[in-house]
Design a protein around this nucleic acid. Structure first.
Length: 479
DNA sequence: TCTGGGGTCCTAGGACCC
DNA sequence: TCTGGGGTCCTAGGACCC
């Protein structure tokens, strides 16, 4: 928590429908719904005119049509929403560089870099200005909450809707939260709310009055600890500008339940292609393939399998996903299938960039993971290796020793691709040498062995050791 | 009117290793 | 021969968010 109300949460009002109404004047002032328009679709966004009829996000479209037959029902046009979102976020970043975009229509801001001493009045003025610029430039309205933490900012952007703003003075957090329903706290969904209500806890104030032990006993360690703090208005989470993706997935729901294994397999292949395309577009590979299935009764199954090395290849992902599908009982029919890849690393398959590589210089690099004879740990020597530039290098892997494990197999082509990071994992006894070949320049080596003969521990990070400026490019096999 | 699609995080049990 | 405690990885499921 900060001493000053410098954390902001900005949320665009009824974003999807607002963009549609901007693009199509005939929709303005009318109930508009964006979402799945077909049989099993649900509402993504209902315009404020539609909310009068009780329409809400996540409501089945069929019910929305019944409640408000005259609304315009539109399929989402994500390109248009992305464009509008970019325009807004550009304006937001003019106010502060510390912006955490949490979704297409939402962001946290930290004003500290530009206005470390901001008080309630100044923050109010800055937010007024930002909202005015957003409206002038894009036609969209945004609501903003501001306070000493993400929690307070988020809760109050919601209360400010639509087209409003609230700046919470430091020190008033707990008293403002106390009368609210527990559902107001982010992270309290239907299940948690029901559990709390069953114990007579309906308001944030009641929750705040409990001992930590009691909340943990009720909700588990992680969730309980966090909610106990939140209920008291305590929240130390930072605004982080970038976060690495943890998984990539694609799923879809059938118009009617499917039992035919041939159709299901075809669908798995289509989903796999979408996932693979996105992995390669982002330069990612993953080790764990997940198949998701939803049954006729809406219960959800997941089956997963973990590969020895990461992949971004459709064929590899598809083979695993199909194998997982084989193990599923589909006799009662499936309503949804999904394919996902997790355990991601910034690692690009050799074949992807082959065409692009031909004209580039390919410097020599050597990466070595070593260990002494006694110490065996699967994670010794693992981790991200800092590889600065040039952006792409490729070469061949040698492994020695009985217990070496590496995502790179002997003889395999490997590359450090555009992201400036690569990785090597050794299992202790033996060693992995990644030897990059090209013009006679070695730019450096990665060393993970201990200098003084003690056992290697996971705390020993891989070290990037630049090559001597001189000419010894011949020795590229290790220390 | 049955309930989308993209994610994140947590829990819990079992395997395996030291 | 029996016993234990810690740590990591993997798998499955569930809550939650937009």
């Amino acid at each position: 928590m900060r001493a000053r109300p410098v954390i902001l949460h900005l949320d665009l009002d009824a974003f999807f429908t607002a963009v549609e109404q901007l693009h199509k004047p005939s929709l303005r002032g009318k109930p508009v719904v964006v979402g799945g328009v077909r049989g099993r679709g649900v509402v993504s966004t209902a315009s404020y005119e539609a909310r009068v009829f009780g329409l809400r996000s996540a409501m089945p479209t069929a019910e929305a049509r019944r409640r408000c037959p005259n609304a315009a029902f539109l399929s989402p046009r994500f390109e248009a929403y992305r464009d509008a979102s970019h325009a807004v976020m550009d304006l937001v970043r003019e106010l502060t560089p510390l912006v955490e975009q949490v979704s297409i229509d939402e962001a946290y801001l930290d004003l500290t870099p530009e206005h470390p001493q901001a008080d309630v009045a100044l923050v109010g003025e800055l937010v007024e200005g930002l909202r005015a610029r957003i409206h002038a430039r894009t036609g969209l309205t945004a609501s903003v909450g501001a306070g000493t933490s993400k929690l307070v900012a988020k809760i109050h952007s919601d209360l400010a809707k639509p087209d409003g703003q609230i700046v919470v003075p430091p020190g008033e957090e707990a008293e403002r939260l106390a009368p609210m329903a527990v559902r107001a706290i982010p992270g309290v969904g239907p299940a948690t709310a029901a559990r709390l209500t069953a114990h007579g806890i309906a308001t944030v104030g009641r929750l705040a009055a409990l001992e930590l032990d009691e909340v943990v006993a009720l909700l588990g360690k992680a969730h309980g600890t966090q909610l106990h703090a939140f209920a008291r208005g305590e929240d130390d989470r930072e605004v982080v500008t970038e976060r690495a993706a943890k998984s990539v997935s694609a799923e879809s729901t059938f118009e009617t339940d499917v039992t035919d294994r041939v159709r299901l397999a075809e669908h798995v292949r289509r989903l796999t292609d979408r996932v693979g395309e996105r992995l390669r577009a982002d330069g990612l590979s993953g080790r764990t393939v997940v198949l998701k299935a939803r049954r006729h009764d809406f219960s959800t199954l997941t089956r997963s399998t973990t590969l020895d090395q990461p992949t971004d290849a459709d064929s590899v992902v598809a083979r695993q996903a199909l194998r997982l599908l084989d193990g599923l009982d589909v006799a009662d029919g499936l309503r949804l299938l999904g394919v996902g890849v997790s355990g991601l690393s910034l690692y690009t398959q050799p074949d992807l960039l082959d065409g692009l590589l031909d004209d580039r210089p390919t410097p020599v690099r050597t990466s070595t993971v070593e260990d002494d004879d006694e110490f065996v740990r699967p994670d010794a020597g693992g981790g991200a290796l800092p590889v600065d530039e040039p952006p792409v290098a490729r070469g061949e892997v040698d492994t020695e020793g009985p217990a070496v494990r590496s995502p790179w197999r002997p003889g395999q082509d490997v590359e450090h691709a555009e992201h400036g990071r690569g990785w090597v994992q050794g299992s202790g006894v033996g060693r992995v040498t990644v030897r990059f070949e090209g013009p006679n320049t070695e730019v450096g080596r990665i060393r993970t062995f201990a200098e003084d003969d003690r056992a290697l521990t996971p705390a020993d990070p891989p070290v990037w050791q630049p090559a001597e400026p001189a000419d010894d490019a011949a020795d590229t096999t290790g220390p």
